[in-house]
Design a binder for these strands. Structure first.
Length: 565
RNA sequence: UGAGGCGUCGUCCAAUGGCAGGACAACGGACUUUGGAUCCGUCUAUGGAGGUUCGAAUCCUCCCGCCUCAGCCA
């Protein structure tokens, strides 16, 4: 018997190749353990989604496990709010860390022990230099550094001093513990890096138990080692830190994971820096971390993105070491593809224009069955009420239609989706000359939307019945930044000058078909011809708020744009 | 100009000495009761110069360009 046919494996990226080779060689006993190690100092964004996809994905592919570990080594920046939000977001993305939820701060005690061991080995010392002096002693990219005058203190003195640092005898900034490596190393990270700084600051989980806190380079490898991580996946900027990661673990002789670096995600029209996202929140540029314009997971969720779309996006962009900027249209493509398959269809009018059918009986109304989703016949149909007075989209009528405009115009016949053909007989205007009402006639023989005589119309319009419609607030979005690269600024300007002033447009008085009433926050649908929308948590009984997740591809908009150019 | 890393269509990713391929975008067409969706087609790339080889994106040499590092942030 031959082996059962295997499904072609997913393309192998360089990380998976390394992992597979390690499994073949039995490097870590054939095991695969990864971790996603966020610092709880902000919300997760789409860039983290890529990392999560890699960290959890690699583990899953090889029957391993992935830990969620909070790298909470800096109490000055961290907060429980972020811990909660991060867990919610990772879970929402469909990832499960099982029992493996960890906190770096739970390892502080053991790290302190290892630090003392390093001191005893003569490989770490307490330095009294100020931060500025340490910087000055570090040298430059082309010149070696100079030894601190405190570099050769005795083991006993170092031990004593370090214990008194821990006991809180010294003020912030007065002393640090440094590794004694090589002040002349061409890799600046090896020029006696700081391991501990004094911080009299309450930690969100440890309270006031500690007043020295470990630095990333010292702590991270130990965290990985303690947890039995085999492959420590991180982004490219840590490449220069790998020799240090390795050095600490080698001195201690403990389990030594392999650090592998990959390129972080950049997206056009998007800012990925946590610090700057925080700034947008603090300045009130956006409504919060979960503003639908934010690239945060929380923002994407509120906007109406699905975990499936994000995961597919992560799959398509792949993993590499090349710095790259992905076109945001790829993300949007993944979104549309997913939503098109699943979203129920409804009709709604964003900017209502009154349409009266003069030969339709006063007071009459009838109901049409429209497909819930043409992509999915199993979804069935929905009932849409129709009557003499309707609303159509202002954009769907032109008194003087330009070339290639196929929608309604005086004398022209169009189809009202799932209802009748109507012909524009005349318009009514206000004193300023604006069209305020379109008067039409309808052909009763076209009921359901087809003409028995076989005549065609060039356009199908969406509509709602005025007396049956519900009102809603609809929020439309554009990219948060006006430039593909938000850092592309003129002299004297900053990235904040590239914030798109029209990134959010709030429309009141929109009209929706009644089937949309009372939908819960997060409900996603397509408004035909307009795009995908979802119910915003700002909705209140009687006041529905919809976010436009993404528009449909719009051929007419393209034609118009080209005509203008 | 020290060290580390990276250069393939406009963008992202394949091809691991043997016909440079896919996706997105763009453009054009078919179809359409969503100007949606779907389908078909077109376009464009190995940073440069040498070398090895029957054969190079791939191996070698040199050059060029870009990214990262001088936090008591991660």
């Amino acid at each position: 018997m031959s082996e059962p046919e295997k499904i072609a494996p997913a393309r192998k990226d360089f990380i998976r190749e390394i992992v597979e080779e390690d499994i073949r060689q039995g490097t870590f006993g054939g095991k695969v353990v990864t971790r996603f190690p966020p610092e709880p100092n902000g919300y997760l964004h789409i860039g983290h989604a890529k990392a999560i996809h890699i960290d959890f994905g690699v583990a899953a592919d090889y029957g391993g496990r992935c830990h969620l570990r909070f790298d909470d080594t800096n109490p000055a920046k961290e907060d429980q709010e972020y811990i909660d939000a991060i867990q919610r977001d990772v879970r929402w993305l469909g990832r499960d860390w099982g029992e493996h939820l960890y906190f770096a701060s739970d390892y502080f005690e053991r790290m302190l022990g290892w630090a003392e061991e390093l001191i005893r080995q003569g490989k770490a010392y307490v330095d009294d230099l100020s931060a500025d002096e340490i910087t000055a002693h570090r040298g430059t990219l082309t010149e070696p550094g100079r030894a601190s005058p405190y570099r050769d203190r005795s083991v006993e003195e170092n031990l004593d001093l370090f214990r008194r640092m821990q006991a809180g005898e010294f003020p912030d900034g007065s002393k640090v513990l440094r590794a004694k490596i090589d002040m002349a190393s061409p890799n600046l990270n090896l020029r006696d890096p700081v391991m501990y700084r004094i911080l009299h600051r309450e930690h969100h989980r440890q309270g006031n138990r500690f007043c020295v806190y470990p630095m990333y380079d010292w702590a991270h490898g130990l965290e990985d080692s303690i947890e039995g991580v085999t492959h420590s996946l991180c982004s490219l900027e840590f490449e220069n830190h790998r020799p240090l990661y390795d050095w600490f673990l080698d001195q201690l002789g403990v389990h030594h994971p392999k650090q592998i670096e990959f390129a972080r995600l950049n997206l056009t029209y998007t800012m990925m820096s946590k610090r700057r996202l925080l700034e947008l929140v603090q300045r009130g540029v956006v409504r919060g971390w979960d503003d639908p314009r934010m690239p945060t997971i929380a923002g994407l969720r509120r906007r109406g993105y699905t975990p499936e779309a994000i995961r597919e996006f992560c799959r398509l962009i792949g993993v590499d070491k090349t710095n790259s900027t992905v076109d945001i249209q790829l993300l949007e493509h993944c979104l549309r593809e997913d939503l098109n398959r699943r979203a129920m269809r409804f009709m709604g009018v964003l900017r209502p224009l009154r349409l009266v059918i003069e030969n339709y009986p006063e007071g009459k109304s009838e109901t049409f069955e429209a497909p819930a989703n043409p992509e999915d016949p199993a979804a069935g149909t929905r009932a849409v009420p129709f009557s003499k007075v309707l609303y159509i989209e202002q954009d769907d009528f032109r008194e003087d239609p330009p070339k290639q405009f196929f929608r309604l115009a005086p004398g022209r016949e169009v189809r009202l989706r799932a209802a009748y053909f109507v012909r524009c007989e005349r318009v009514k205007k206000d004193e300023r000359g604006n069209v305020v009402e379109v008067v039409c006639s309808y052909d009763p023989a076209t009921r359901g939307g087809d003409a028995p005589d076989g005549r065609k119309v060039k356009s199908t319009l969406h509509w709602v019945s005025a007396q049956h419609a519900i009102e809603a607030e609809v929020r439309l979005y554009e990219h948060l930044f006006t430039k593909p690269d938000p850092d592309d600024v003129a002299e004297g300007q900053t990235w904040l000058d590239n914030v798109n002033p029209r990134s959010e447009e709030v429309l009141q008085g929109c009209r929706l078909e009644p089937a949309l009433a009372e939908r819960p926050a997060g409900f996603t649908c397509q408004l035909e011809r307009l795009g995908y929308f979802c119910v915003d948590p700002d909705s209140r009984p009687g006041h529905l708020v919809l976010n436009r997740t993404i528009s449909l591809k719009d051929a007419w908009a393209k034609i118009e744009k080209k005509a203008k150019a």
